[in-house]
Amino acid sequence: MFIFAVMQEMILILDFGSQYTQLIARRLRELNTYCEIHPWNKIPDITSDIKGVILSGSPFSTRDESAPKPDLSNIKGKLPLLGVCFGAQYMAQNYGGEVSPSKIREYGRANLSFVDSSNVLMQNVNEKSQVWMSHGDTIASVPDHYKVICSTEDVNFAGYHIQGEETYGIQFHPEVYHSTDGANLLKNFVVDICKCDQSWTPKAFVETTVAELKEKLGNDKVILGLSGGVDSSVAAVLLHKAIGTNLHCIFVDNGLLRKNEFEDVLNSYKGMGLNVKGVNAKDKFYKALEGEKDPELKRKAIGRVFDEVFDEESKLVENAKWLGQGTIYPDVIESVFGYGRSFRNYKISS
């Protein structure tokens, strides 16, 4: 499932569990290009809005029995495709080449020693420029129609282009800042190869989102808890733009805010035209905290009283159907390893 109901031009990033996958997404967003990260084993339908696909790195070695084996039959040769690190190795090994353990493992800095400057992907990627490597395997051989487009001293196949297709593999990580021309490489892929029009701007996001919220919420009432922080404030303004006074905001004074914060923030919310109710619940919080010295129990008491106050206030909004929340993308991205299991538990080999 994609995040937006109305599809828009995007790059699909298939995640194999690399620590850098989110960085690829952020670099693309910086190019005003929308993208989504999906686990390699849950490839969404390839619709016409998908302009290209990027395969991430991975803590796995392609030589492992348990290594991911994505089904690229709907993608490779049909859409522009860029494999990074593991992604590049997978496409080398799986289509007739060979991946073997490196004699010299490459972690960290390396410099390009050869660049095919006639290749579209390598425009403005300078010979000798620094690239960031993180791999214990190396591509030992590739089929004949794979053309080498860059190399380092130690790695001949640092980048290849499969002739006759818009398919590329890059051994280093263009998404990290330490790859000095990496942003150019990604831009070449997204703009010149995938032909994305770079129209994903804050303004475009607001238009799309407000239209979708209108469609989804109709005449329903929504309740949203404001904290004074960035996420809940921006979420509130977006919802307000879509449904106006059907958005009922609740801002609780727990008696533990900064000096004058409650009044100041409440006034600034009202100035933005938000339908916001300030609830003074100081005494309830102080009472629940009375004599409590244990940090964990203090936190729990504050959380409990907040839920009670918020519940009570929510009930006063008749026929409310929705609860608005300021959840952001890093909380949403589905992990390759399933929820609650961090990649940090794995040895990062790519």
Binding site: R26, V230, Q325, P330
Partner: peptide, 18 residues
């Protein structure tokens, strides 16, 4: 209540830009 999350697609710096 059903949940609606208008910022689900955004990174933190994008929330600020929006």
């Amino acid at each position: 209540l059903k949940v609606v999350e208008p910022l689900r697609a955004l990174f933190k710096d994008e929330v600020r830009r929006v």
